[in-house]
Simulated assay, not measured.
Amino acid sequence: MRRGIRVVVAPDSFKGSLSALAAARAMAAGARRALGPGATVTAVPMADGGEGTLDALLGAWQGREVRCEVTDALGRTRTARYGLSADGTTAVIEAAEANGLPYVRDVPLQPLRADSAGVGELARAALESGAREILLCIGGSATTDGGAGVLRALGARLLDRNGAPVAPGGGGLAAIDRIELEDLHPLARRASWRVAVDVDNPLVGERGAAAVFGPQKGATPSDVVALDAGLAHLARTLADATGADEAALLSTPGMGAAGGLPASLCAALGAEIVPGARLVADAVGLQALLAGADVVLTGEGSFDAQSLHGKVVDGVRDCAPAGAAIVVVAGRVEVSAAEVAAAGLTAAVSIARGPATEDQLRDDAAELVADAAESVCRMLAR
């Protein structure tokens, strides 16, 4: 390959091992070792609406971080972050800062009780600080409550047939008799809401929030049935309260992200669902950065079939220029060579040098990612 090769590295985080920034730096270091000083190597940390999206957007905007006290998925106080654009009018909220699964792993998981109210508390703080647009990035949640907790934190009342508030969490959804929105925060009503998702699952059914993601949050088979029924009931009551299309709430791709959190926001606040990878790509100007690239390196901890449906790899591929070699570097590759080619990718390589435990890969992740990127670039430069 000619001297003066242009390489852009645009990975997601390697969850539990490397942030997107650390992964990008490691890939860039490997590319530079392989190609020497004549190459141009540009590092662009990416995210898809989940972990790392807040930091990626703050970097792109040159915005500022704000900390405030909220409640976690079990109602305990924690300090969480949100970001504001330089002019203070747009806030980015990473929902997992409040309702993230890692923050409740110190106790047995409680899938029926876990609640998204802390996300609403973050949004309220951002709105009261002057934000008029909310970008809500929702990966990594511990909750399956359809966003009911967010609405409650913003002033809505979710009542049972006796007029009493229903219990927080997905386990309380089936008891909702009516949703009263008269006291919903006026700033929330006036704001523009976009919800960045990293999956395309619908709200309910065999690919729905409860069935697919509930077990990761501690749900037993009977819990999954109860949560799925509760989410379907929530969609009906939201439709009754807002005039929203019940069928759209149940089946729109992405509505099942983060335990169905978009459902309440779309129905009550007119939120728009957007692919998280596309949102971040637009914010960092990825298409312009990739223009003229000869090699594009992207990656994540586990490259599987889901990676090609709204994740960072998917977004980077879509922005890459025709003719560029696009290679995925990942901790684990679960996609066949034929599937890689069919997806328009050049190759996918694992960072493992041989048989290794996940702990070993995690401990040496930066070195292994750099080595894999170096090997890829050496092969492509021949």
Rank of each mutant, 00 (worst) to 15 (best):
E65L: 15
V376F: 00
A175H: 07
A86F: 09
V327Y: 01
G49C: 13
P165M: 04
V166C: 09
G38P: 10
L361S: 01
G36T: 07
D371V: 09
R190M: 08
S141A: 12
G299E: 05
L290D: 01
C68F: 05
L250C: 13
R32H: 07
A47P: 15
L74N: 12
Y103N: 14
I5N: 01
A20D: 05
G243A: 04
E334N: 08
A343Y: 00
V197F: 03
R2T: 14
V333Q: 04
L58S: 12
V340L: 00
N99R: 08
D72K: 03
T237P: 03
G170W: 11
L101T: 11
D363K: 11
G118E: 11
V197E: 06
V195S: 11
E51W: 10
A114Q: 11
S13W: 04
L122H: 03
G52E: 08
A343V: 03
L380P: 04
A247F: 05
V199H: 11
A373W: 03
V312A: 01
R67Y: 10
S129Q: 12
D318T: 09
A125Q: 04
D145M: 06
A175S: 14
A320L: 00
A167F: 06
G147S: 09
K311T: 02
D145E: 04
Q360M: 06
R207V: 00
Q360E: 15
T298A: 04
R278I: 08
S116F: 03
L136S: 13
F14A: 05
R3T: 14
E300W: 09
G205P: 15
V327F: 01
A60T: 06
L112R: 15
R161K: 14
V212C: 02
L368A: 06
T79C: 05
R105Q: 13
A164S: 13
R362C: 03
P186W: 02
A372T: 02
G301C: 04
G49I: 12
S13L: 10
